[in-house]
Nucleic acid binder design. Structure first.
Lengths: 194, 194
DNA sequence: AAATAGCCTTGACAAATGTCAAGTTGAATT
DNA sequence: AATTCAACTTGACATTTGTCAAGGCTATTT
């Protein structure tokens, strides 16, 4: 069950885990199964756990005054799930995290995550590498959001995350891009004839 | 000259620097003055340095096909300047970083930054705290960009970064919000009569 | 003091995107 | 097999935002 996490850590840190470290990490990460449509986090709750996705997928989204949902980000195998804002500041979350497929997660508490970073250099290096990757990705996304048209943002998504098209329905892709489902449908129709 | 950086590190890490650490940090961070309109980073260059802003302000922006500029982010006193994407992957930057006022910076190279994180626990803690803060801020910004109208995004900016209105011209605020200067002007006019 | 350049505003119009309603399709459920 | 439901598409129209052009204000430069 924990094997994918070990592989992830060794890949990110570019180092090999010792048996001792494996045991330590295993003792902190607890397996959890969630079925499709179950919630990992609900709006108003405090995000006390981070989850590593072993298998499955999820979306993090907000709901606005008009009841419309806006997808902040998706999660897939070997990605992490949590609301950074709530997790870090321990305040109630404005977001929901819902599984989109039957999923297997490995979850760790806030306190244990800090402790593990202190105790395991490899884990600390892994989180640093993940932070870097995340900051690059979010910078790109902000750039796309403020400077590109809907069509350009869709183009970039097709090139950057082609898996999304296989795993997520089109109306959710639209929400992720900040577009209505109708507009994305028309953009795709338009691209066909090019 | 390095005092604001020391204060920043002690505030973020919630620990006191030893004289030894101060000397180490001082030896790695090199003072640099840039005047208004000078560039800290130009599109196509590789971002090899990070800068801590002691005094002054800056903007990071891209230029699109039509010659329009899009401001990804601003920098003010005790903020950091660099292109995460270029700095981390050592690839040519798509962005420019231009000083908006005469400024005093403390700059550190990629290699020295990694070395310093290894050698100084306080510095490492500081960067972790900064990463956390940055991930919260970018998550909020993405949420705003994909789910709010121009007026709502301006409202949020007024509440979150009121300093921006004092330090940066309105056309740059518009660019930061992903709006044309004309649209922001009309949004403000509209808000006046409410 | 005059000239210049940057910034902001406004109007008229164009383009992009959203909203609402209807209809289709295909998968999931009964 | 029939039913239900979710996802996608399309048309008509509304709203938001962008574009272009002009004019005014202010600070800086000459």
């Amino acid at each position: 069950m924990h094997e994918p996490l070990f592989e992830y850590i060794e890949a990110k840190s570019e180092l090999k885990l010792t048996d001792e470290e494996r045991l330590l990490i295993k003792s902190k990460f607890q397996p959890k199964r969630l079925r499709k449509r179950q919630y990992f986090l609900q709006e108003g709750d405090v995000s006390k756990y981070v989850a590593f996705i072993v298998k499955g997928s999820a979306r993090m989204f907000s709901v606005d005054d008009k009841g419309h949902e806006h997808i902040i980000r998706f999660g897939l195998e070997s990605w992490w799930l949590n609301d950074a804002e709530s997790f870090i500041s321990l305040t109630p979350s404005r977001y929901n995290i819902e599984m989109l497929e039957d999923s297997e997660l490995l979850i760790i508490s806030v306190a244990d995550a800090y402790e593990l970073r202190d105790k395991s250099r490899l884990f600390d290096l892994t989180i640093k590498a993940m932070d870097k990757q995340a900051s690059m990705a979010t910078q790109r996304r902000i750039h796309a959001a403020i400077s590109m048209t809907g069509e350009e943002r869709y183009d970039e998504l097709v090139n950057t995350y082609p898996q999304f098209l296989q795993r997520f329905p089109q109306n959710m892709i639209a929400s992720y891009l900040g577009l209505s489902p109708e507009t994305l449908s028309r953009i795709r129709k338009n691209l066909m004839s090019k």
